[in-house]
Nucleic acid binder design. Structure first.
Ligand SMILES: [Mn+2]
Ligand SMILES: [Mn+2]
Ligand SMILES: [Mn+2]
Ligand SMILES: [Mn+2]
Lengths: 219, 219
DNA sequence: CTAAAAATTTAGACTAGTCTAAATTTGAGA
DNA sequence: TCTCAAATTTAGACTAGTCTAAATTTTTAG
């Protein structure tokens, strides 16, 4: 079994490797975990000793097969718990992250299997992120950023990139949720903003910051 | 906020104070927590510094108001999670303790409030133990031990004292559960065993070890 | 009342995880 | 290719929690 701290490092390395492709740097990890680079170096050595990461001094790290499996399993638990919190306990989607950060470290395979069954095998979490399978496979989703959409097509919101309270509350305010359907009416080169119309709802001007944090699928 | 470890010490002191009335000794705590007396002494000093226990060298400890409140809250969380595991996730009553030991340390008042609501404000856990109220009040239950019952009365099983897997599985095997109704047909002085008949069910001879680990209420 | 046993505390050490400050390595730009 | 700033690691320290072994206090029994 691995400690809370080890699991958090593995999860963060997994996350950063996803967006940065090659080796993940010490400073990136330190920044993501709100800790110091020296602490990260210490932990990377421990994880390397346990064969969870490939670590070469000054060259950053990548996850081994073993490390990857543990990281993905923590992500699976995090997202399943988020579904439970929103669907079953009626939390709002902007309230669940911190509690899920704790729940993801509970050690019990049986618990997570039964939770999965109770929730009826969900495939995405409340923010649209895919829930990894038990075997570590992560369902692929060919979404695009709303900012890359073109006018006069119908899109469905599939996922939000920024999970911050303020962004999620902004979306709530404007009635944009996962599965909302919308059309891009107009795109403005000047500031990369766009006018969007929710199907059967209101129109709204979205800044580039918003449209680059929302993923959509063509209907 | 208090650490995992601090919460466990407070919970154990609370439990032991309940059955031992006066001050709780270092060795009792060490035994209950499967740790060493010297470790207990160290922690008692820390808890005393934080005004969570009244500690006098060589004389054992008792909880302060503040310590008591924290301990009872951990017990509340433990028991609510046990209800969730059994009622919602369909765990058997002999499988839930270890997972609840982990879940009881999750920090979120909102989580426990919503769990309580979802479970419809249960008053007892799967083993019949009372679930403390939010304010720290513990519902009193005037049960007696089955071993103290008399013949030819109808009793209802209210709680089990021993929560070990082997005892709970023994009870399962003989179809004795919380709320089972039964009559004591005969009591044998020789070994303090008794013959018990389940209402509408079979008769069975119970050893003293069994009857002193089952609480009942007169119907 | 007193000696031995039992309980408890103290002393000193160890691990995990973290930090600051100093040293080292890397790599970008002149 | 050289220099220097940025990135990274090392050195040394600190906290929480634990342990063993030794010292001290309390309790028990004769
Ligand atoms: Mn989250
Ligand atoms: Mn999420
Ligand atoms: Mn329990
Ligand atoms: Mn219980």
């Amino acid at each position: 079994m691995f400690s809370h701290s080890e699991e958090n490092y593995l999860k963060v390395i997994h996350k950063l490797a996803f967006s940065n492709s090659k080796n993940v740097s010490t400073n990136l990890i330190a920044n993501e975990l709100q800790t110091k680079a020296s602490s990260v170096t210490d932990m990377l050595k421990k994880l390397a000793d346990k064969k969870l990461v490939n670590y070469e001094k000054y060259r950053g790290v990548s996850l081994t097969k073993k490390g990857e499996l543990i990281a993905v399993n923590v992500v699976r638990k995090h997202r399943l718990w988020e579904v439970f919190l929103v669907d079953t306990l009626k939390f709002n989607w902007d309230e669940v992250h911190d509690v899920a950060e704790q729940l993801e470290h509970i050690k019990s395979d049986q618990l997570i299997d039964r939770l999965d069954t109770f929730l009826n095998y969900p495939t995405i979490d409340p923010h649209g992120d895919p829930i990894p399978k038990k075997n570590g496979e992560i369902p692929f989703n060919n979404s695009i950023l709303l900012s890359e959409g073109i006018t006069n097509k119908i899109y469905k919101v599939s996922c939000v990139k920024d999970n911050s309270k303020s962004f999620l509350q902004f979306l709530d305010k404007h009635e944009i949720t996962i599965n909302s359907e919308l059309t891009i009416v107009d795109k403005f080169d000047f500031d990369d903003s766009m006018t969007v119309k929710l199907i059967g709802g209101h129109s709204i001007i979205l800044s580039n910051k918003v449209s680059t944090n929302v993923f959509v699928n063509l209907k």
